[in-house]
Design a protein around this nucleic acid. Sequence first.
DNA 1: TTCCAAATGAAAGGGTTTTTCAATTGGCCG
DNA 2: CGGCCAATTGAAAAACCCTTTCATTTGGAA
Lengths: 133, 133
Amino acid sequence: MAQGLRAHGYKLTAQRLAVLQVMQEGNELLTPAEVLDRGRKIHSRLGMTTVYRTLELLRELGFVRRVHGAEGCRAYAQAREQDGHHLVCQACRRVVDFPCSGLNELIEQTARRTGFSVESHLLELAGLCPACQ
Amino acid sequence: MAQGLRAHGYKLTAQRLAVLQVMQEGNELLTPAEVLDRGRKIHSRLGMTTVYRTLELLRELGFVRRVHGAEGCRAYAQAREQDGHHLVCQACRRVVDFPCSGLNELIEQTARRTGFSVESHLLELAGLCPACQ
DNA sequence: TTCCAAATGAAAGGGTTTTTCAATTGGCCG
DNA sequence: CGGCCAATTGAAAAACCCTTTCATTTGGAA
């Protein structure tokens, strides 16, 4: 992920590396405030503004994805699957990626029926992970 | 929809009827602020607080649904399909409902693979409507 | 008509996200 | 290695959005 930043011409600052590490070390859903808290344990001089900016940057690069769960609409999780979606545990906030294959048929069918051209889609599942059931 | 409110024991106030009418008269995506603006043309004494409360009430009753689009995460649209999802035009914000049948297979497959029990899902499509293409 | 629980909205409160701008810094280049 | 500069940062302020509070109003049952 760090190499990814590099490759796109972004500087590898201590702040970015801290946010990166936070997003990589678990697979939980994290709000910007939580990322700030955890990030400060890695690099004490880390500001809220930078957290917001870095999370959006990582999202643009496809390293993290936003999750619109029940608990507020601004949370981020690591994107492990390329072009995948999230399945979130409502109890422990653990996140699992799953591929979006199988959705295409439904999308095409809907596009045909409505005449819309579908350009993007958002799919999220919520439930209980094996440990929390 | 008004009868629905009645049936659930809610009072039919002028404010609720105004919000209701706003949500019924188009099939656009509307933010609470937009609902307030339009609602005030129908009933000038309408407050922001009531708009928020009424939209949530209508959502609980299944008359409207929240949409988490690109442009902010709090918008509402009329729910025409029972238990359906939204397809939003990115240009004109027109909204079309589509049934969620066909998604169940994907959900079950994902549940089996991950061991999660899936309790809810969120699916939204975005694109261009026939007129805007 | 009377009455009261339900409903309302203005204002205050609270939290989150963005903007601004002066100071800092990563990393290219000589 | 050291200088340089555009990229980056963060504190503070501003902007935004949503919820709570509470005194007042009101729908509709009796």
